[in-house]
């Protein structure tokens, strides 16, 4: 594979410190790679450490062991400011942003690029407009965040991440709570961003079917085994889904065969 590696880690141990020097290790040895121009889906059952892994890769929490290389440099060597122009995030967190407009939300994505007072220059306005256009909600620019549907809100936050102009975008369950059409739209949008703009996109999801259809690479995580990486076809041929989820999947890729 000749594509640029944007994030790499070897023997990564994730978890969080408890009181009195004790630590809760969620996963002990992870090897992973993220490529530019690809959509990577992180799949795994609840409680296997998906969120912890994403938070560690975003730099929100420190790894317990091992090292993450971001564009070839240790993640820990980046300052908050430098990171904010490299990794953009879309989270499931509840925000208090209901009272600002979509345009104002997306303009917050320009935070790392604006001056001390956050004045938007001509370039910032054009990046914001492009980001709104890319996710297809430019007609909603003046609406309050509180007035948006779940799907539109997700798009607005993706536009915020785009306005940040980061080569890497990490999304925590961006399709949760969305209806079917919004799910498909969101995944298509992420696919376009990766393939046309060369972004590295990593998202966690529970939508196995959608992940198989739309991602270039899949990371499979459960609490015991090492992280398995591969294209959807490779992983199906390999029987990896069967092992990870105790499911039967036929080579055509239908996840429903186990129900028959």
């Amino acid at each position: 594979m000749s594509k640029e590696i944007t994030i790499a880690a070897q023997n990564l141990s994730i978890g969080y410190p408890l009181t009195r020097g004790k630590r809760k290790v969620v996963h002990a040895s992870l090897d992973l790679r993220l490529h530019a121009g690809e959509v990577t889906c992180l799949l795994g059952l609840n409680g296997c450490g998906k969120s912890t892994l994403l938070k560690t890769l975003c730099g929100f929490q420190k790894p317990l062991g091992g090292e993450i290389l971001l564009k070839g440099r240790p993640l820990s060597s980046y300052s908050r400011g430098e990171l904010s122009t490299l990794v953009g995030v879309v989270l499931t967190e509840k925000t208090s942003a209901g009272g600002i407009s979509v345009y104002e939300l997306v303009s917050l994505g320009r935070y790392p690029h604006t001056d001390f007072f956050g004045q938007l220059k001509e370039k910032d306005h054009s990046v914001i407009a492009q980001s709104l256009d890319a996710v297809g909600i430019i007609d909603k620019a003046d609406r309050y965040i509180a007035e948006l549907s779940d799907g539109e809100r997700q798009k607005a936050f993706i536009a915020k991440a785009l306005a940040q102009e980061c080569p890497i975008i990490i999304l925590d369950e961006p399709t949760a709570f969305l209806d079917v059409s919004s799910k498909i739209e969101t995944m298509q949008l992420l696919g376009n961003l990766a393939h046309n703009q060369g972004k590295s996109i990593l998202l966690s999801t529970h939508d196995l079917d959608l992940a198989l259809r739309t991602s270039d690479l899949i990371w499979l995580l459960n609490s015991q085994d090492p992280l398995t990486c591969g294209s959807p076809q490779e992983l199906i041929a390999d029987g990896a889904f069967e092992r990870y989820f105790n499911l039967k999947i036929n080579p055509q890729g239908s996840i429903y065969s186990s129900l028959k």
Partner: peptide, 12 residues
Amino acid sequence: LLGDYYASNLGV
């Protein structure tokens, strides 16, 4: 307004 994680990701 976006919460601590988002703010931190923006460089705050």
